[in-house]
Amino acid sequence: MKPTPRPESCAELRDQVRRLTTEWRDAGRYIPRSDSWLRSFDLEFSKELAAHGLVAMTYPKEFGGAGRTHVERLAVTEELLRAGAPVAAHWIGDRQIGPAILRHGSRRLQEEIVPQIASGDAVFCLGMSEPEAGSDLASVRTSAEPVEGGWRVNGHKIWTSQAHNATHAYLLARTERTERKHEGLTEFVVDMKAEGVLVTPIVDLSGEHHFNEVRFENAFVPAHRVIGEVGGGWRQVVEQLSFERGGAERVLSSYPVLVELIAETARQTDDRELNALLGSLVARLAVLRRLCFEVAQAMDAGQAPVQQAAALKYLGNAFERDVIDALRRTDLTRDATPDSVFGQALLASPGFGLRGGAAEVLLSLIARQEARS
């Protein structure tokens, strides 16, 4: 269990991030954008954050981390998302792969991979989703067969963000065929430069490339690159999803749109309906930020708040779509382009309810929690 952070430490961290992002933005080194944690990639920026101790914040110091709390990390991630900063290079590895390896990986794997995440040298993509499997992770067909010295992987992953920039992939693969699809799954760390790993770009309607298909054709993975128990991947991945679903990025991906809406409402002070709508959105945001805080507190207590994180993601998805819809009521969307704040958020919005689990999956998790209570 991590110690309770001092309120002043969170305030100091927020000030530090604000100074850093303002310096980079004012120097023209990045342009704020929506969905920056997934689409805005700048390895130099991530490495500067790492040099300031703002990556791997919750990791033990022996592995290059800062030994801070998840509540303190939340303060930093909120500020980075609020600034629309280019954080995609380190986000996946920092958010969930490092914690997964620290919880379940061997000492050798921890020493090999975790310091690289902390320094920004390891860039991770997620090899979870597959064609025809949707949000049903237990239906993965990618297989890993034991061979001398490790595993031979064959299969196909899709919607793999930043795979073309990644040095490593987290991979969920089937190591045993069983009658129960949730059994026989194993987690791996794969070198993206390994022979047999093939990346094909998926370009969206705006011409932007951050999605990819990844194929594994007899790709070799060394034995020590298994995360945790062989065949025990489902329990581990469900736990890992609390890190993926329970963060501020499920609430603040469209924050630049909310900023524009606030500014427009200030200009249209006589539009009572718009003012009421904005007030409702701001109130909802306050509640969602509180949920983020409670998830972070649970993690600091050593828990894996799976259901709480699912509830946060479900409510956060609805909030972000409603922010975008609210801006449609103004004149700001009339001449919007794909590169505008509104255009970026609108193009990203179809993915809000899919990535990290579709609504049906999240509601199922929440319902199981209610059934037990």
Rank of each mutant, 00 (worst) to 15 (best):
A118H: 01
S119W: 02
S119I: 00
G120C: 03
G120M: 04
G120E: 01
A122E: 01
A122N: 03
V123I: 15
V123W: 03
V123Y: 04
V123G: 02
C125M: 15
L126S: 14
M128E: 08
M128K: 08
M128F: 11
S129E: 13
S129Y: 13
E130N: 00
P131Y: 05
E132H: 13
E132M: 07
A133V: 05
A133D: 08
G134Q: 11
S135C: 09
D136A: 05
D136E: 08
L137V: 10
A138I: 00
A138L: 01
S139R: 06
V140F: 10
V140H: 12
R141P: 04
R141Y: 04
T142S: 10
T142W: 04
S143T: 14
S143N: 07
S143A: 13
A144V: 07
A144H: 06
A144F: 06
A144P: 03
E145L: 08
P146K: 12
P146N: 06
V147E: 09
V147L: 04
E148I: 09
G149W: 03
G149D: 09
G149N: 06
G150Y: 06
G150C: 06
W151G: 06
W151I: 05
W151F: 11
W151C: 08
R152W: 05
V153A: 09
N154W: 00
N154M: 06
N154C: 13
G155H: 02
G155R: 01
G155A: 10
G155P: 02
H156S: 07
H156L: 09
K157I: 08
K157E: 04
I158S: 13
I158L: 11
T160L: 10
S161I: 15
S161R: 14
Q162L: 15
H164E: 14
H164R: 15
N165G: 13
N165D: 14
N165H: 15
T167S: 14
T167E: 11
T167F: 12
H168W: 03
A169N: 09
A169F: 14
Y170Q: 13
L171F: 04
L171D: 07
L172M: 11
